[in-house]
Amino acid sequence: MVGILSDIGLSRKLNEDYVGTYEDDLKKVYIIADGMGGHNAGEIASKIAVDSTIKYINNLSEFNDPETILCEAIKSANIDIYNKSQENSSMTGMGTTITACLIIKDRLLVANVGDSSCFIVKPNDIIKITKDHSLVQQLVDSGSITEEEAVNHPNKNIITRALGTNITVDVDLFSIDIKDILKVILCTDGLTNVVSKHEIYDIIIKNNNKDACNQLVELSKMKGSKDNISVIIFEGECENVSRDYTE
């Protein structure tokens, strides 16, 4: 069972996050996008990102090179957003993050642009797969600030890469054996800005996917998240693991 939830949060008047999933006998697709806050039409950009990526993948009949397919699907969505932004001055500069998962057979492919996250849960660990394309991450990478200082940095929401702001975009891609994974989590920074990965792990490991999504969103709001909050949780294929909850 897939858990999926997108919440406007405590402070915003509009939900600029957008989430989507698609499953059939050949593939599974899970995508989360966060329209750029403070930019025109962020909610339009995030919806196009998700819908266009899924449409591109669904228009294909063969998946011999899934890595290329996922990257090209996101690049196609980027062009769709960019072209849409040129049609109307009210949408000029619109953009969005995207983090997408494509499962083909036993491979989990994860692609991202921006600072929405993908985590994998193993029986005794949680690991962040994606790397944020953000100003703060650049400062951490250069050694200018520590990971601890990054948590409350005033510029933590400034991203350095997004869909739709240019005609071309670079996409990061990761390939993982899904048989080693218990759960996969996609989330926007409305969650990760206030909830630690250890708190995420504790909630996910003790609950079914739907309840975990609800609890993570509620915890984010309880801790004062000022952004929209979106979460997708789905199963991996890690075997021989006992679960205390009932799906």
Rank of each mutant, 00 (worst) to 15 (best):
Y22M: 10
V29T: 05
I127L: 12
M222N: 13
R161A: 12
T130S: 15
V136A: 01
E87K: 12
A49T: 03
S230N: 08
Y56F: 15
I178F: 08
I98E: 03
I158R: 00
H133C: 11
I69M: 10
L10K: 15
L135C: 00
D189R: 02
N59Y: 02
K27W: 06
S144N: 09
V2R: 07
K13L: 03
N112Y: 08
R243V: 15
C118N: 03
I229S: 06
K179N: 15
N207Q: 04
I57C: 14
G114K: 05
N209H: 11
L10M: 14
G224S: 10
V194R: 01
V231N: 05
F119E: 05
D202Q: 15
K13T: 03
K27A: 06
I74H: 00
F63N: 10
K122F: 06
E235R: 06
I103R: 02
L60G: 10
K131I: 15
S85L: 05
I176G: 00
L135F: 13
D141Y: 04
L135H: 11
L216W: 05
H39P: 04
A45F: 03
E199Y: 07
S90N: 14
N15S: 13
M94C: 04
S85F: 04
V50Y: 08
Y22A: 05
V29N: 00
G3M: 05
V217R: 02
Q137E: 15
S242P: 01
E147D: 13
G37N: 12
G143T: 08
R107F: 11
